[in-house]
Design a protein around this nucleic acid. Structure first.
Lengths: 155, 155
DNA sequence: GCAATTTGCAACATCACGTGTTACGTGATA
DNA sequence: TATCACGTAACACGTGATGTTGCAAATTGC
C-alpha cells in the first residue's frame, strides 16, 4: 500500500504550523521512517515548487506557499503519475475481442471512479485538513491534553 | 497490478459461449497463464456458487448460472475482499491528530470513489459485456475476420 | 481393475514495487 | 576546517500477485 500521499500531507501540514525549516531527520522521526525516504518523496514536491530545500547548517525543508494554496490533488500529482488502483486489465492491448470488451467495461468503471476521486482531492486544500485538525484539538478533554503533553510524537 | 477480476471476467464470458466444461489447461491457454493459477482463482467463484468443477475424464469448469445473472461486482466479491486502491493511510490507527485529520480526508475521498466503483460494477452484468463483444464482432470487416480465422487465441 | 485425465492443494520460486538502509558526494554555515 | 544537511546511488527487505513443480484424490474409459 502506497502511503506517500498520506505521509506528505501529514508532513506538509506540520510544516504549515512551524517556523523555520524542518530537517529530513526530524521529519523522519515524525513519520516513523527514514530521512532518505523523506528526501526521496519530498523531491517531487520540490520539483513541483511547493517546498524548498536548503543544504547545510540550519537547512531543511520549507513551504513555498500557504496551505490554502495546496490541494490534496496537487500533492498527489507532485508525487508522480502513480496508479490509483490495485486493480486493472490483464492485457491493455488484448487482441481477443472478448478481452477487449472486458477491458472496456473495466476501464470505464475505473476511469469514472478515478475522475471522482481526483475531483474530490482537488476540492480539499491542506488548510481544510489543518482546520479539521484544529477541530480535533478543540474537542480534546483536559485529561487527554495532559496525557499528550509529555509525548514527543504529537504536536 | 491485480488482474484477477479482468481474467475471470474474460474466462466466464468465454464459458458462457461454450458447450461442455472448460479444463483449467484450456483456460490457461486462453489467458496466457498457468492451469494452477486458473484453479486458484476459480476456487473463489466455485465457493460463491457461480461455477462448478468436475474432476476426472471429461471434467473441467462449467457455469452454474447465466451471464445475465452475474455482475462484475459478483465476480469481484467472489475473488475475496481485496483492496481496490494502491493508495492508503500510512497508519490507520494514528495517534497524531494531524495524521488523524489527514486520514479522515483521505479515507473520505477513497470511500466515495470506492462506493461509486462498486455501484458501477453492480450495474454491469456479464451479459452486458458479452453483448459488447457481439458488437465488436459485428464491426469487423471481412478482411479482419479472415485474418483472425487461422489464429487460436481468438474465438 | 487399470490407465488416463483432471481438479485440489501445498510448497517454493519469481517479479514488481514501496520501503528501509548504508555510503558517499556536494553545498552551506559557524 | 569541521559540522551539518540535502542529493543520489546502490542494495536489502517485505509484501502480494504470479509462475512452477509435485503429488494426492476423484472420475471416466478401456
Amino acid at each position: 500500500m502506497d502511503a506517500r500521499l498520506s505521509r506528505m500531507l501529514h508532513l506538509l501540514i506540520h510544516m504549515g504550523r512551524m517556523h523555520g525549516p524542518l530537517t529530513s531527520e526530524a521529519a523522519a522521526t515524525m513519520l516513523g521512517t527514514n530521512p532518505v525516504v523523506v528526501r526521496r518523496t519530498m523531491a517531487g514536491l520540490r520539483d513541483a515548487g511547493f517546498v524548498r530545500s536548503v543544504r547545510g547548517h540550519g537547512g531543511g525543508w520549507t513551504l513555498t506557499c500557504a496551505l490554502e494554496d495546496m490541494t490534496m490533488l496537487d500533492v498527489h500529482r507532485a508525487l508522480g503519475e502513480n496508479g490509483i488502483f490495485a486493480l486493472g486489465p490483464a492485457d491493455p492491448k488484448a487482441t481477443c475481442l472478448v478481452e477487449q470488451a472486458v477491458n472496456g467495461a473495466l476501464e470505464t468503471a475505473l476511469q469514472e471512479a478515478e475522475a471522482l476521486l481526483l475531483r474530490h482531492l482537488a476540492g480539499v486544500s491542506l488548510a481544510d485538513i489543518a482546520a479539521d485538525f484544529d477541530l480535533r484539538v478543540a474537542e480534546l478533554s483536559p485529561e487527554q491534553i495532559a496525557a499528550r503533553s509529555h509525548r514527543a510524537d504529537v504536536p
